[in-house]
Simulated assay, not measured.
Amino acid sequence: MSLLFTPVGLSLYLLLALLVAQAARHTRMGFWGFFWASIILTPLVTGFFVLMTQSVPAKPTRPTMKRESSSSSAARGAAPSTPSRSRPPR
């Protein structure tokens, strides 16, 4: 009987597939893509592909500007701002 069709062999195969998928989290195919690829192919082949692929760069975050409330600017002695005529007040 083949080692793969025993409970220990099947568990090792799934564990290797999970390890390959975990290593591929930050690639284009992601965790689930490489997990199913390693189930269909073998974890060794897909593990080689994970080593050859590049990580997807993190998405740049947009800088947020903090809005000051009128009470905090008035407390510092600044004149309260008047609403612009181009936009309706909120």
Rank of each mutant, 00 (worst) to 15 (best):
L3Y: 15
L3D: 13
L4Y: 08
L4C: 06
F5I: 10
F5Q: 05
F5S: 06
F5W: 12
T6S: 15
T6V: 05
T6F: 10
T6C: 08
T6G: 13
P7H: 05
P7K: 11
V8P: 01
G9S: 02
L10W: 12
L10G: 13
L10Y: 09
S11A: 07
S11Q: 02
S11W: 06
L12G: 10
L12D: 10
Y13F: 13
Y13C: 05
L15Y: 13
L15A: 15
L15D: 13
L16S: 11
L16P: 03
L16G: 10
A17S: 14
A17I: 00
A17E: 06
A17Q: 08
L18N: 01
L18E: 04
L18I: 08
L19D: 05
V20I: 09
V20A: 10
V20L: 03
V20M: 08
A21T: 00
A21L: 08
Q22T: 13
Q22H: 08
A23H: 06
A24I: 08
A24P: 01
R25M: 09
R25V: 11
H26K: 08
R28K: 12
R28G: 03
R28M: 01
R28H: 05
R28S: 02
M29T: 06
M29E: 05
M29S: 02
M29L: 09
G30P: 04
G30N: 03
G30Q: 04
F31P: 02
F31L: 07
W32Y: 09
W32M: 14
W32Q: 03
W32V: 12
G33P: 00
G33H: 00
G33I: 01
G33T: 00
F34K: 01
F34I: 07
F35V: 00
F35I: 02
W36N: 03
A37M: 14
A37Y: 04
S38E: 03
S38C: 01
I39W: 11
I40K: 07
I40P: 00
L41G: 11
L41M: 14
L41Y: 14
L41R: 05
L41W: 14
L41C: 15
L41K: 12
L41V: 12
T42M: 04
T42W: 02
P43M: 07
P43E: 10
P43R: 09
L44K: 06
L44C: 06
L44R: 07
V45S: 07
V45K: 07
V45F: 10
T46Q: 03
T46H: 08
G47L: 01
G47W: 00
F48R: 10
F49G: 10
F49I: 13
F49Y: 11
V50P: 01
V50M: 02
L51R: 13
L51H: 13
L51E: 14
L51F: 14
T53D: 07
T53G: 05
T53K: 07
Q54V: 09
S55T: 15
V56R: 06
V56W: 06
V56L: 11
P57C: 03
P57M: 05
A58L: 12
A58M: 13
A58N: 10
A58R: 13
K59G: 09
P60I: 12
T61K: 15
T61A: 12
R62I: 11
R62W: 05
P63A: 14
P63K: 15
P63R: 15
P63H: 13
P63M: 15
